[in-house]
Simulated assay, not measured.
Amino acid sequence: MVTNRRILSEVRVNRSMLAGGMVLTAIGSVLGAAGAAMVCAALLTAGRKWVRSLETPPAALAQRALRDVKTASAAGWEAWRAEHSSPN
Protein backbone atom coordinates (compact mmCIF):
# COMPACT_ATOMS: atom_id res chain seq x y z
CA MET A 1 0.00 0.00 0.00
CA VAL A 2 2.86 2.38 0.66
CA THR A 3 3.95 2.09 -2.98
CA ASN A 4 0.48 3.03 -4.26
CA ARG A 5 0.33 6.09 -2.02
CA ARG A 6 3.72 7.24 -3.14
CA ILE A 7 2.80 6.91 -6.85
CA LEU A 8 -0.51 8.71 -6.42
CA SER A 9 1.07 11.54 -4.47
CA GLU A 10 3.51 12.13 -7.35
CA VAL A 11 0.77 12.55 -9.97
CA ARG A 12 0.09 16.23 -10.60
CA VAL A 13 -2.80 17.17 -12.85
CA ASN A 14 -2.75 20.54 -14.58
CA ARG A 15 -6.14 21.75 -13.39
CA SER A 16 -6.42 24.67 -15.78
CA MET A 17 -5.78 22.37 -18.75
CA LEU A 18 -8.27 19.84 -17.36
CA ALA A 19 -10.92 22.55 -16.90
CA GLY A 20 -10.27 23.92 -20.39
CA GLY A 21 -10.61 20.46 -21.88
CA MET A 22 -13.89 19.93 -20.05
CA VAL A 23 -15.25 23.26 -21.29
CA LEU A 24 -14.23 22.53 -24.88
CA THR A 25 -15.76 19.05 -24.65
CA ALA A 26 -19.03 20.50 -23.36
CA ILE A 27 -19.09 23.12 -26.13
CA GLY A 28 -18.35 20.45 -28.73
CA SER A 29 -21.13 18.25 -27.37
CA VAL A 30 -23.65 21.08 -27.56
CA LEU A 31 -22.57 21.96 -31.11
CA GLY A 32 -22.71 18.29 -32.12
CA ALA A 33 -26.22 17.93 -30.72
CA ALA A 34 -27.33 21.11 -32.51
CA GLY A 35 -25.87 19.83 -35.78
CA ALA A 36 -27.58 16.47 -35.37
CA ALA A 37 -30.90 18.23 -34.73
CA MET A 38 -30.46 20.30 -37.89
CA VAL A 39 -29.70 17.20 -39.96
CA CYS A 40 -32.77 15.42 -38.57
CA ALA A 41 -34.97 18.43 -39.31
CA ALA A 42 -33.68 18.64 -42.88
CA LEU A 43 -34.24 14.92 -43.48
CA LEU A 44 -37.72 15.05 -41.96
CA THR A 45 -38.68 17.99 -44.15
CA ALA A 46 -37.35 16.30 -47.27
CA GLY A 47 -39.18 13.08 -46.39
CA ARG A 48 -42.46 14.88 -45.90
CA LYS A 49 -42.12 16.66 -49.24
CA TRP A 50 -41.31 13.35 -50.95
CA VAL A 51 -44.35 11.61 -49.43
CA ARG A 52 -46.61 14.49 -50.48
CA SER A 53 -45.30 14.24 -54.05
CA LEU A 54 -46.24 10.56 -54.41
CA GLU A 55 -49.20 9.75 -56.65
CA THR A 56 -50.45 7.03 -54.31
CA PRO A 57 -50.25 7.69 -50.56
CA PRO A 58 -48.27 5.17 -48.50
CA ALA A 59 -51.41 4.16 -46.58
CA ALA A 60 -53.11 3.15 -49.84
CA LEU A 61 -50.05 1.16 -50.88
CA ALA A 62 -50.04 -0.62 -47.54
CA GLN A 63 -53.76 -1.43 -47.81
CA ARG A 64 -53.22 -2.83 -51.31
CA ALA A 65 -50.30 -4.96 -50.15
CA LEU A 66 -52.31 -6.26 -47.18
CA ARG A 67 -55.22 -7.17 -49.46
CA ASP A 68 -52.81 -9.01 -51.79
CA VAL A 69 -51.29 -10.90 -48.86
CA LYS A 70 -54.72 -11.93 -47.58
CA THR A 71 -55.75 -13.10 -51.04
CA ALA A 72 -52.55 -15.11 -51.49
CA SER A 73 -52.89 -16.59 -48.02
CA ALA A 74 -56.48 -17.65 -48.65
CA ALA A 75 -55.52 -19.18 -52.00
CA GLY A 76 -52.65 -21.09 -50.43
CA TRP A 77 -54.86 -22.32 -47.61
CA GLU A 78 -57.53 -23.49 -50.06
CA ALA A 79 -54.92 -25.28 -52.19
CA TRP A 80 -53.50 -27.01 -49.12
CA ARG A 81 -56.96 -28.06 -47.93
CA ALA A 82 -57.84 -29.40 -51.39
CA GLU A 83 -54.60 -31.41 -51.48
CA HIS A 84 -54.88 -32.78 -47.95
CA SER A 85 -58.60 -33.15 -47.54
CA SER A 86 -59.67 -36.47 -46.12
CA PRO A 87 -62.34 -38.51 -47.90
CA ASN A 88 -64.31 -38.78 -44.64
Rank of each mutant, 00 (worst) to 15 (best):
A75R: 10
G47C: 15
G47R: 15
G35Q: 05
A65N: 13
K49P: 00
L61W: 00
C40Q: 14
G32P: 00
E83K: 10
A36L: 10
W77H: 06
A75S: 06
A62K: 08
G76R: 03
P58G: 01
A37Q: 01
R81Y: 06
V69A: 08
P57C: 03
Q63L: 11
V69R: 09
A74V: 07
L66I: 03
V69T: 04
A26M: 13
E55V: 12
A79P: 00
A33F: 09
A26D: 11
A36G: 05
V51A: 10
T71F: 01
R15L: 14
A19M: 05
V39Q: 04
A46I: 08
L66M: 08
M17R: 14
A79K: 09
M17D: 10
L24P: 01
A75V: 04
W80I: 05
M17K: 14
L31G: 01
L66W: 02
W80N: 05
S29L: 14
L54S: 06
A75T: 02
V51M: 10
W50E: 13
R81W: 05
A41E: 10
C40H: 12
L43D: 12
D68V: 01
H84C: 02
A82K: 13
A79R: 14
C40P: 01
D68Q: 06
A74K: 11
W77P: 00
A82W: 01
A65G: 00
A62F: 03
T71C: 00
A62Y: 11
L43Q: 14
P58M: 02
S53V: 02
A59N: 04
S85D: 10
A60M: 15
M38I: 12
A72R: 07
A79Y: 03
K49R: 15
V39W: 06
S85G: 15
G32T: 03
L61G: 04
A60W: 03
L24W: 03
D68L: 00
A46Y: 07
M38F: 08
K49L: 15
G35H: 00
G21F: 00
R67N: 09
V69W: 02
S73Q: 11
R48T: 13
R81I: 08
A36P: 01
A72L: 07
L66V: 00
V39Y: 06
V51D: 08
K70V: 03
G20Q: 12
A33I: 07
H84S: 07
L43F: 13
S29M: 14
V39L: 12
R67D: 10
L31I: 12
A42Y: 06
M22E: 10
G28D: 04
A41M: 13
L31T: 12
M38T: 09
G76E: 07
G20H: 01
E83Y: 02
G20T: 05
E78R: 11
S16E: 13
L44N: 12
A75C: 02
A79T: 06
G20A: 06
A79Q: 09
L44S: 13
V30T: 10
P58Y: 02
L43N: 12
A79G: 02
L54G: 01
S29G: 15
R52I: 12
T56H: 08
